[in-house]
Design a protein around this nucleic acid. Sequence first.
DNA 1: CGGGTTGTTGATACCGCTCAAACACTGTGG
DNA 2: CCACAGTGTTTGAGCGGTATCAACAACCCG
Lengths: 232, 232
Amino acid sequence: MASRKLDRSLIRGFDLFRDMTEENLDAVLATVQVRTVEPGEPVFSQGASADEFFLLLHGHLKVVQITPAGEQVVVRHVLPGEVFGIAKAIRRTNYPATAEAVTESIVLVWMSSQWQDFVALNPVLAFNALEAVGERLQEAHTRIRELSTEEVERRVAHALLRLIQRAGRKEGDGSILIDFPLTRQDIAEMTGTTLHTVSRLLSAWEGQGVVRSARRRIAVTDENRLAALARG
Amino acid sequence: MASRKLDRSLIRGFDLFRDMTEENLDAVLATVQVRTVEPGEPVFSQGASADEFFLLLHGHLKVVQITPAGEQVVVRHVLPGEVFGIAKAIRRTNYPATAEAVTESIVLVWMSSQWQDFVALNPVLAFNALEAVGERLQEAHTRIRELSTEEVERRVAHALLRLIQRAGRKEGDGSILIDFPLTRQDIAEMTGTTLHTVSRLLSAWEGQGVVRSARRRIAVTDENRLAALARG
DNA sequence: CGGGTTGTTGATACCGCTCAAACACTGTGG
DNA sequence: CCACAGTGTTTGAGCGGTATCAACAACCCG
């Protein structure tokens, strides 16, 4: 009972479960499973049967698609409180991408087959999921627009701005640190370029005092300048 | 009554209204408005208040985003039976893009404010909308992957394949015609390139007997060859 | 017919990828 | 505690795919 209560309060604040009654929340929690994932380990893999869907409780994931040629493209990053792997809800039988832990993570797991029951029990779930997917669709269109019309430098600048927006942590010196390990390769896969070009850009920007970076750590020291670079 | 019955049968087959009862369908139709749109005319415009949402009954639309620099990017094409402009359902107050008629079109129009009521009345609507948006999200990710990793020729080939899939009409000679007017510029805006490059590609392909084209009309004469080009 | 739209084609420039090599940091095990 | 391997990062040189610039041709409609 105590643990049940704890769980309920844990997910109470998450968007997906907004406006659900206590009883229904309990019903949803009754079948949940908790799983921890080590860095580099997948939660689910591209092409696998979409038997489960997930909510990230703690940690950080990246969702990547792998092309036939073996290149990776980062689809998105998952932050705590977000649902992911809801392929079944959008009428897919297989996961279209791989979700992999960037840092040690804790995920809640449900059987996909329960999605229908949950929605029947509480239609607001579909409503909330629709909003979540809609937001992602917009972000996807933004990226398409950038990939179609902007040069690499501006795309990378935009990507960094979005990263500090979503996962930024203010540092003592006024800079904003991206709060999870991130390589040049990762940024390249987010922006459709190569790690070499990203490295050159970051080096140049570091010289101008716009960013500060170390191995797998990037902080923005002058957000305004970066925004100007993004504007072109 | 007769006209009401007619309307009901008209939209009965559309995905969004799948699994709705006759009465609820009537309730939804009670407040609908019909509007015709001339080629080149917008149904709604980027940035405008999202007061209405739509279903395309007849014709053909394209949805475009305009960048600050004035360049256009084609977000998607709308075919009969599809909903569009559902910004409010994904928690936006303004349209993120412009929807413009390519051919003379007939659209059904509802007030955005009714979306909530409709969903309350018939939760399956949210479910169906979720599926529709999910499909678009996947297509968006496909385009991101292509823009990130493929060269122009393959992207254009993929775009044509998708177009004949969605809007292809078999011709007598075995070729497949894209069933609406389409310029080089349009294809360029769909694939993140320039009309010049598209023109060169189509010329080359026409020489190889892969496509046949006239002013604003493009037909694929050898789908297999085109698929091979898309594969790279 | 004349003006606007659409399409073709050539010449040139350049952004950013590819290829290549070396360097830096981190964790591990002897 | 140091050697070493693995991963991540930097930087240079060269080239190629495409955008850009430019001019013209074809087509359509009023």
